[in-house]
Amino acid sequence: MNAAVFKKIGIVCGLMFTTTTFGDQDIDRLGLPPITAPIDNPLTGAKSELGKKLFFDKRLSADGSVSCASCHQPDRAFSDGLPKSKGVGDRTGTRNAPSLLNASLMDSQFWDGRRSSLESQALDPFVNPREHGLTSYGQLLQAIRHNQDYASLFQDAFDVHIDSIDERHIAKAIASYERSIARGNSAFDRYYYAGEQTAISSAARRGLALFMGRAQCVSCHHIGSAGSSFTDHQFHSLHIGLGRIESRLATVSKAAVAARTGERSIDATALSEEDISELGRFFITLNPVDIGQFRTPSLRNVALTAPYMHDGSVATLEEAVDQEIYYRTVLNGRPLILTPDEKSDLAEFLRSLTSSNAQAIASPEGS
């Protein structure tokens, strides 16, 4: 990063974090809230570079065909364009790959919020049979240690010999890379936070007024006075996918409770069992009020990340707008009626949330 970096230490829920802010020259972060990192994993360039190499390395999968970037592609705002992602052996999971571009802004990770941090999330895909397909973290470590091009990177990042690394070093490095790719500086950011009145079109301005007003989008996709993550970090049900199991809900719910005591991990079950996957947050909390609820996604760069929803069942931005309008109608108990022109304005506003360089993050050579 070419700007001065400033850090301050804070305590959240008893855990210590560093809050990293960036100098005025770092225009890429315009409009973003401060980015936090655990006190034991401050963001450094060396860790980010190591994390980048790990992120794009297909050798860290069972058949050498899959890397983190397979499902989180830079030119798609770190999503993959598929309804449901595919891993080793062309195995399909149960969820749509969310964008990682601003994952560092989220209070929880995955659609069901089953992980609370980037560090705790980073390792799960490696040992998920529907993703990288490795059998253990030991196999992951062995694959890394057998590639001496990692030796200097781990030394620079953690001052540790490659033979002494453990999975925590890998998680910290990948999390650091994911924090480094946060991007703001959309047309909306330049309009709303930098006062550039011509940054967005008149249609997008009308869409913004609807977004914050009658369409009620802002109630879940928050806009802050100093920066916006465009999410409330909560879990909601749009009833998408739930209809398929509704007649069997009691049976599927019991199966989910039983699966929590089985040998298979929560992560592996969520991506393998389609019926249980549709229960969303319930499979994590086992609280009936969470049945069918999924995390509110950020809308930043949403125009680049179709298809939408947790199961990728909504193909276009316009269809997603219609779905959200229907949700508001059900939630309010009265119709929310928007004209075709108003829906078009809303979609135009959503397109204004695309970061200016969202597709310009380079992949390592040969990846």
Rank of each mutant, 00 (worst) to 15 (best):
Y177M: 02
Y177F: 09
Y177K: 04
Y177S: 01
E178G: 05
E178C: 13
A182S: 12
A182W: 00
R183F: 01
R183W: 07
N185M: 02
S186G: 04
S186Y: 06
A187M: 09
F188R: 04
F188S: 02
D189A: 13
D189F: 02
R190M: 05
Y193D: 00
A194D: 13
A194P: 01
A194C: 06
G195L: 06
E196M: 10
Q197L: 05
T198C: 02
T198L: 08
A199C: 04
S201Y: 10
S201A: 09
S201E: 01
S202N: 15
S202I: 10
A203N: 11
A203T: 09
A204H: 02
G207D: 04
A209Y: 12
F211N: 06
R214A: 13
R214I: 10
R214Y: 14
A215D: 05
A215I: 13
A215M: 11
Q216G: 01
C217M: 13
V218A: 15
S219Q: 13
C220I: 07
C220W: 14
H221L: 08
H222W: 13
H222K: 14
A226E: 12
A226P: 00
S228F: 10
F230E: 01
T231S: 12
D232F: 11
H233F: 12
Q234P: 00
Q234L: 10
Q234M: 08
S237R: 04
L238K: 12
I240W: 05
L242S: 07
R244M: 14
I245P: 03
I245S: 05
S247Q: 15
R248G: 06
R248V: 09
R248P: 01
L249E: 02
L249C: 09
A250D: 15
T251C: 07
T251Y: 14
K254A: 13
A255D: 12
A256W: 00
V257Q: 15
V257A: 11
V257F: 13
A258T: 12
A258Q: 14
A258D: 11
A259P: 03
R260I: 04
R260C: 00
R260Q: 08
R260K: 04
T261S: 13
E263Y: 15
R264G: 03
R264D: 05
R264H: 14
S265W: 02
I266E: 06
D267P: 00
A270W: 01
A270D: 07
L271A: 02
L271S: 08
S272Q: 09
E273G: 05
E273K: 10
E273W: 14
E273S: 14
E274P: 04
E274W: 13
D275W: 05
I276W: 06
S277I: 03
S277G: 12
S277A: 14
E278Y: 13
L279E: 02
L279S: 00
G280R: 00
R281Q: 03
R281I: 02
F283P: 00
I284Y: 03
I284G: 00
I284F: 03
T285L: 04
L286W: 07
L286V: 01
N287C: 08
V289M: 07
D290M: 06
D290Y: 11
D290E: 10
G292C: 03
Q293H: 11
F294C: 03
F294R: 01
P297I: 08
S298W: 13
L299V: 10
L299W: 06
L299H: 09
R300W: 08
R300V: 05
R300H: 11
V302G: 04
A303S: 12
L304C: 10
